[in-house]
């Protein structure tokens, strides 16, 4: 709980810190680790450094970004997990297409509330009690994202992640996930690019 609170504070602080940036992007998306587990992820997105190149008559925008996120996903009657992670990557946008790609590296922390056993009430079939165990993992990932903006305020994105679930007490395991969601630009002023 402390870690979650710290991260949320970090998220808000980072948001404020980068307030002078042109964009204030908030993302919310469907998060599916292993494709069959369901969840949601909320994040923010900040450009640390931006470049603009002119090629022929087109402008090409690129940026170094950081994206802190918080997510939750679950597997029914098996576990509920919380993910805190931050991606750092490189985003390339062509303003004419409003389309971007964004490869990144991520580092996350996963807390899984794992169900160990269920106590079943035999007169109804209801679960009277669940024995659970908290499990902690580090979650480094390589990500590939892309998206499109319908207008300056809203766009969709998707992200594929591939990495490793690492724990001092449980053997490592491959991790993969995909996200699909919307990005909202909360900035009121006009921006030259996204």
């Amino acid at each position: 709980m402390k870690k979650v609170a710290l991260f949320v504070i970090l998220l808000i602080t980072t948001f404020k810190l980068f307030a002078q940036q042109k964009d204030k992007l908030i993302s919310i998306g469907y998060y599916a680790p292993y494709a069959i587990q369901s969840g949601v992820k909320i994040g923010s997105f900040f450009n640390i450094k931006e470049w603009v190149k002119e090629k022929d008559v087109k402008l090409k925008f690129s940026s170094l970004f950081i994206s802190p996120q918080i997510g939750v996903f679950f597997r029914p009657r098996n576990h509920t997990s919380f993910v805190l992670n931050a991606d750092m990557g490189y985003k390339i946008t062509n303003s004419k297409q409003n389309f971007y790609i964004s490869p990144s590296l991520g580092f996350g922390y996963l807390i899984a509330n794992q169900v160990l056993s269920n106590t079943i009430t035999l007169n109804s079939g209801d679960v009277a009690k669940r024995d659970r165990e908290l499990r902690h993992y580090f979650l480094p990932t390589i990500n590939f994202g892309f998206g499109n903006y319908a207008n300056k305020k809203i766009g969709w994105y998707t992200k594929l992640s591939f990495g490793r679930k690492m724990s001092p007490t449980i053997e490592d395991a491959t991790f993969f996930a995909f996200e699909l969601g919307l990005k909202f630009n909360l900035l009121k002023t006009e921006t030259t690019h996204k």
């Binding site: 009657r77 098996n78 169900v115 160990l116 056993s117 269920n118 106590t119 079943i120 009430t121 035999l122 007169n123 009277a128």
Partner: peptide, 8 residues
């Protein structure tokens, strides 16, 4: 009136 424990 009975309960039973089941492992996941």
């Amino acid at each position: 009136n009975a309960e039973i424990d089941v492992i996941t």
